[in-house]
Write a protein that binds this DNA or RNA. Structure first.
Length: 819
RNA sequence: GCCGAAGUGGCGGAAUUGGUAGACGCGCUGGACUCAAAAUCCAGUGAGUUUUAAUACUCAUGUGGGUUCAACUCCCACCUUCGGCACCA
């Protein structure tokens, strides 16, 4: 027998598979389709680590499995090559992103082939290629035409290191998600997508998809829907009114002051002369503060009085108006009625400035004493005139009705989610296809003029001016107005990377289509994605944006589904042996290259699957992989060398004939592995195959009918094929099969053959295990009782006691309850 | 602070609807093979008590209660770890 030589056979099959195009996608109406997709990766210079493989291996195993089960499977791969990470890399290394991108994608592709993935490379896409971003721009225009892309000057998040604006989702703890610098505010003219128009829609349709609860919850929280009422507060000695939003109108009688955000437009008009200086000072300081300082939890609430008074519409009480930075201009109306008794922040503020704290919702067991902290729960209304005695819920209804009827306010829904900031002052992205003309204003680039090509330039470093590097490229900026043909200027900002990944899953269905972003027939055939697999870190970014674009497409009648990804799974992260995340800077990266060289791609695959549950984090261990490597060697040896005592006809005498047990074991294993694969439980599937082979080895000194042995080893190879594609292909060939193992039908199990004839009857006394007896399946309760009572071990524990009852579980156990 | 997930041998992890806790693997121990080692193969391996031995018993799934004939699984309280959100009125 030739030794298992993975280096040789893996290289051999990689070449054969590529030449025979065995992984080309099949599109046929005769089979059900299955679209299995990985998150769109950004190809980094560091290449793949075994951590990344924790995602790609399981989806590959599953795709192979589905294909063997008779599906036509779409399992594509492409590159999210545009965007900041790629550009930053290029800047750091001083090499043009176009060049680095090309190099890195080639490396990724090589590594993915190395580990035996079955991607259809004829469908490879790259978001930084003009034939791709042409359509990203096309989608921008679609949103624009539907009123969902607009430009406004707004204080936006600015990263002083990356020199660009960031979307809200790209800020973590007030810091840039990429470089960790503190984010500051800057007033810039920016493009936004109106995702808030779809807030409710995005929220509701979460019910229709099979996603991890965790992600659904994160999206719900991110969207942050809250129902309330917006109403106007009159200002004493002024015509102006201040709109405020509240979800707790039942606490309106507890309003003892009003607070405005520092950016509030009414501050200038309402502040009295006397307080102008103090207010201006406060605003200046607040405005200079970075987000992180402003949001710091420990920070004391402060603010200044503006000299004006607002009037409570319920009782005409006059309350002072303050400006403070704990109120955000970007949510609700940027002003609130402050109810210190029932809001923690207002309470803190009132304490600091000795403002009145009036209880209007009675906390449980409250007897009129002063509150030590705000009571934010619901309760019975007090100190609220005719509303006294009402529970909160009713109070909310009644007061809303009152304000509504009086024309003072109206019910409103607010969302935490903000519009999606799409402009980036960066070179490496899809140019925003808009032209500014002195005569015609903002003009979209006509579809037939797409793509707006990203010029090839030398100086792509970002600038501090808040302008994209493209602004300095005269040939790019200067153009003609598509409407009036006069001289005009192009928009020089590019789109953030998340634009590209908001539709790429559609492009895979027809990656070379020229007449549109995708071929509608192919989209109809393949979409939606049946299984989408990636990390949880994209919960509120990519996964929300892609859903949004899909809904816009649905409304525009270009797709016939409202959700792009039916089922979503998040893989756990793979940590380095030191328990930390793998990263080049920490020097603890383990690459698939080194593992494949030392063991084999098949061993790497099997090990990553076996390490633990798919969704759970795992720690790479250099020792553990030995176990699966041994297992693969045992498979190799068993199939090529070992055999039990084979016979062709019923023999007499000699060794024990275990044909029947073997057959049962085979069918039980098929069932176990199949069901485990369906449930993405690859670790127990591998374990089942290990048990299977252990059983086979223990059968070698027994007698087996020839056809059963041949079924046995064929099944072993087939079940293992998605996990260890190289080795099984080689073994399949060596055992005389002509066609590739990867196009064979998945083995089926015969349910009858998974049933046992005997089982271990567990005998308990008062719930404690006392004995075990082998008995035939299907025996009656009475028989079980008889057997149990005969057990000497059980007898020991019941002899001085009175038997009260028997509890039986058919084919499992009997419990004798005795006192 | 709020929301969510998870705590099982020396380690990674298994355990249908509550029904044999620790599958499978790593590691370790002993043995076989070998001049020797590696590799491979065989056996053992939760802790404790007991027995010459086979055996048997007690304890054990983060902690403390509860429901149940029976709890890793269900309920209540708490502890720890990880993840998310964090002035959203």
């Amino acid at each position: 027998m030739e030794k298992y030589n993975p280096q040789k056979i893996e290289k051999k099959w990689r070449i054969i598979w590529e030449e025979s195009k065995i992984y080309r996608t099949e599109e046929t109406l005769e089979k059900p389709k299955y679209y299995c997709l990985d998150f769109f990766p950004y190809p980094s210079g560091d290449g793949l680590s075994v951590g990344h493989c924790k995602n790609y291996i399981p989806t590959d195993v599953f795709s192979r499995f589905k294909k063997m089960c008779g599906y036509s499977v779409l399992h594509p791969m492409g590159w999210d090559a545009f965007g900041q990470p790629a550009e930053q890399e290029a800047i750091n290394k001083g090499i043009h992103p176009k060049i680095t991108t090309e190099k890195y994608t080639a490396n990724y592709k090589r590594q993915l082939s190395l580990i035996g993935t079955s991607y259809d490379w004829e469908r490879e896409i790259n978001s930084s290629h003009p034939d791709y971003y042409k359509w990203t721009q096309w989608f921008f225009l679609l949103l624009y035409k539907r009123g969902l892309a607009y430009r406004k000057k707004a204080p936006v998040n600015w990263c002083p290191t990356c020199l660009t604006v960031l979307a809200n989702e790209e800020i973590e703890d007030g810091k840039c998600w990429r470089c960790g610098s503190e984010v500051t505010k800057r007033d810039l003219m920016q493009w936004f997508f109106k995702i808030t128009d779809y807030a409710d829609y995005l929220l509701k349709d979460l019910e229709t998809i099979d996603w991890p609860e965790k992600i659904v919850l994160m999206q719900q929280n991110w969207i942050g829907r809250s129902e309330g009422i917006e109403f106007n507060l009159k200002v004493k000695n002024s015509e102006k009114t201040i709109p405020v939003f509240t979800t707790r109108p039942d606490t309106i009688y507890g309003m003892t002051f009003v607070v405005l955000a520092p950016e509030h437009p009414l501050i200038n008009e309402l502040t009295t002369q006397e307080f102008k200086n103090a207010v201006e000072n406060y605003r200046k300081i607040a405005y200079q503060k970075s987000e992180i300082q402003r949001l710091a939890l420990e920070k004391e609430k402060d603010g200044v009085f503006i000299g004006a008074y607002a009037i409570n519409p319920m009782n005409n009480e006059e309350v002072p108006i303050y400006v403070t930075d704990y109120v955000l201009m970007t949510y609700g109306t940027g002003a609130i009625m402050a109810v210190p008794a029932h809001d923690e922040r207002d309470f803190e503020f009132a304490k600091k400035y000795n403002l009145l704290i009036r209880v209007v919702i009675s906390p449980p067991d409250w007897e009129g004493e002063e509150l030590k902290e705000a009571y934010t729960g619901k309760g019975i209304m007090v100190n609220s005139d005719e509303y006294n005695g009402l529970p909160s819920q009713e109070g909310i209804e009644k007061i809303c009705n009152y304000l509504d009827n009086k024309g003072i306010g109206r019910r409103k829904v607010n969302y935490k989610m903000r519009d999606w900031l799409i402009s980036r002052q960066r070179y490496w992205g899809a140019p925003i296809p808009i032209i500014y003309c002195d005569a015609c204003g903002e003009v979209p680039v006509p579809e037939e003029d797409l793509p707006v090509l990203l010029p090839d330039i030398e100086k792509y470093q970002p600038t501090e001016t808040g302008e994209s590097p493209l602004a300095k490229v005269q040939e790019f900026v200067n153009t003609f107005c598509p409407k009036c043909r006069k001289l005009a200027k192009r928009e020089t900002d590019t789109m953030g990377g998340f634009a590209c990944s908001s539709w790429y899953f559609l492009r895979f269905t027809s990656p070379h289509y020229k007449k549109g972003p995708f071929n509608p027939d192919k989209v109809k055939y393949w979409m939606p994605v049946d299984l989408y697999v990636g990390g949880a870190e994209h919960a509120v970014m990519h996964l929300l944006y892609a859903r949004f674009w899909t809904k816009v497409m649905y409304d525009a009648n270009i797709v016939n589904f409202r959700e792009p990804f039916n089922k979503l799974l998040n893989q756990g992260m793979m940590h380095a042996p030191d328990g930390r995340l793998m990263s080049k800077s920490k020097g603890n990266v383990i690459t698939p290259d080194e593992v494949v060289a030392e063991y084999s791609a098949d061993a790497l695959r099997a090990y990553e699957l076996f390490l633990g549950p798919f969704e759970q984090d795992a720690i790479w261990s250099d020792r553990g992989i030995n176990g699966v490597f041994r297992f693969l060697n045992r498979v190799w040896r068993l199939i090529l060398k070992e055999k039990p005592l084979i016979f062709t006809k019923r023999p007499s005498g000699g060794a024990e004939d275990i044909s029947r047990q073997l057959q049962k074991m085979t069918h039980k294993t098929i069932k176990k592995v199949t069901l485990d694969f369906e449930k993405f439980k690859f670790n127990t599937a591998v374990a089942a195959l290990m048990e299977y082979i252990n059983f086979l080895y223990s059968s070698l000194d027994k007698k087996v009918l020839e056809e059963i042995w041949s079924e046995t080893i064929d099944t072993l190879m087939l079940l293992l094929a998605p996990i260890a594609p190289f080795m099984t292909e080689e073994l399949w060939e060596r055992t005389g099969h002509k066609e590739s193992i990867h196009i064979q039908p998945w083995p089926k199990w015969d349910e009858k053959l998974t049933y046992e004839e005997k089982f271990t009857l567990v005998i308990q006394v008062n719930g404690k295990l006392r004995d075990r007896v082998e008995v035939p399946v299907g025996i009656s309760d009475e028989e079980m009782k008889k057997i149990a009572l005969k057990s000497p071990n059980a007898q020991k524990f019941i002899k001085d006691k009175e038997i009260i009852k028997f509890v039986t579980v058919p084919n499992k156990l009997i419990n004798i309850v005795a006192k």
